[in-house]
Computed example of a mutant assay.
Amino acid sequence: MNVDLFDFELPKERIALRPVRPRDAAKMLVARGATSPFVDANVHDLPALLNPSDVLVFNDTRVIPAQLEGRRGDAKIGATLHKRIDLRRWQAFIRNAKRLHTGDAIDFGHGVAAVAEIRHSDGSWTLSFAGDEPVEVLLERAGTMPLPPYIAGKRVTDDADREDYQTYFAREDGAVAAPTAALHFTPGLVAALDEAGIGRETLTLHVGAGTFLPVKADDTDDHVMHSEWGRIDSGVADRLNAVRLNGGRVIAVGTTSLRLLESAASEDGTIQPFAGDTDIFITPGYRFRAIDGLMTNFHLPRSTLFMLVSALMGRERMQEVYAHAIEHEYRFYSYGDSSLLLP
């Protein structure tokens, strides 16, 4: 499909640079089916919008401070780690990469240094970190939170982002971008969901910086999707399958949860245990097998994520959803408002 079909005009003032407080006070646009009227709600209304037989599926990945600033001699080098290779090596996107060559050492300060080992076809590099400490420990000393470019380009990352850009469910280190749909959840909202009898399950997908890469191809068939590592435990898969067998709905919280669930589903919709990489790219025409709904933030024009929600609800329907959101001053992107999409 032509990528231009997924374009829309977004006023710059609709881009959220900070989250609302409390987090579950964010607005939530509810869209059901192809023709039902939209409902303007808030995230804290979620327990009343779901059924006791439903289950929400969260991504429990934890964002690591994967943004590094260093030097190779006199040259400034920026690195955003996006995929762990092993204990000492990570794949990273590099700023000022023209000043970097194989074998160069980069000093990131705070006793953190790495060698540029391999340059990949997408322009990223494999960095091998010096020392014996796990890289995650080194990042806690030298790294900053890797805010999306549409936020980081407008303001400085600060201490508040260490908490704001982490979900209530975060426990598995490895993401360099937050599963932002879950940023809206607070202890109070989780307690209200439990009281309403709505189920909760978690999986792990370590979101990579590739999620922010623009679609440069003119046709979706020519776009190469980034790969991310994920895991669904057998017990989680069994419980989710039982929910659907008993007439409940599986609602993915975020496109990361959705992508991993669909990657793990067999043709008949049965969710299988999963551990490995996925590069699933969902566009209109895709037949969803594992999920019955999606809670997600509002995404960029021409992005793979807007293509995904267009596959779920229909492209014309999603253009209507986004036009309504813009007109009614919903806030967009990672720190923005939410939508509940029920096809």
Results as ranks from 00 to 15, higher is better:
V236R: 03
A237C: 04
A237F: 06
D238T: 12
L240A: 12
N241Q: 09
A242N: 14
V243E: 09
V243P: 05
V243L: 07
V243I: 06
V243C: 12
R244Q: 12
L245S: 13
N246P: 01
G248F: 14
R249F: 08
R249T: 04
V250M: 02
V250W: 00
A252S: 08
A252T: 02
A252Y: 00
V253W: 03
G254K: 01
T255Y: 08
T255C: 05
L258H: 06
R259D: 10
R259M: 10
R259W: 07
R259F: 02
L260M: 01
L260K: 08
L260A: 13
L260R: 08
L261M: 05
E262H: 07
S263P: 01
S263D: 01
A264S: 10
A264W: 06
A265N: 08
S266E: 15
S266L: 14
E267N: 12
E267R: 12
D268P: 02
D268S: 11
T270R: 14
T270I: 11
T270M: 04
I271T: 09
Q272H: 13
P273C: 13
D277M: 07
D277L: 11
T278D: 06
D279C: 15
D279T: 13
I280K: 02
F281P: 02
T283S: 03
P284K: 05
G285T: 14
G285S: 14
R287L: 10
R287W: 06
F288V: 07
F288I: 01
F288C: 03
F288T: 01
R289I: 02
A290P: 03
A290S: 11
I291P: 07
I291K: 14
I291Q: 11
D292M: 09
D292K: 06
G293T: 11
L294E: 15
L294I: 10
T296L: 15
F298M: 04
H299S: 13
H299G: 11
L300N: 07
P301K: 04
R302T: 07
S303Q: 15
L305P: 02
L305E: 14
L305K: 13
F306M: 14
L308I: 13
L308S: 14
V309T: 14
S310Q: 08
S310Y: 11
S310H: 12
S310E: 10
A311C: 08
A311I: 00
A311W: 08
L312R: 07
L312D: 09
M313Q: 13
M313G: 10
R315S: 12
R315K: 15
E316D: 15
E316S: 14
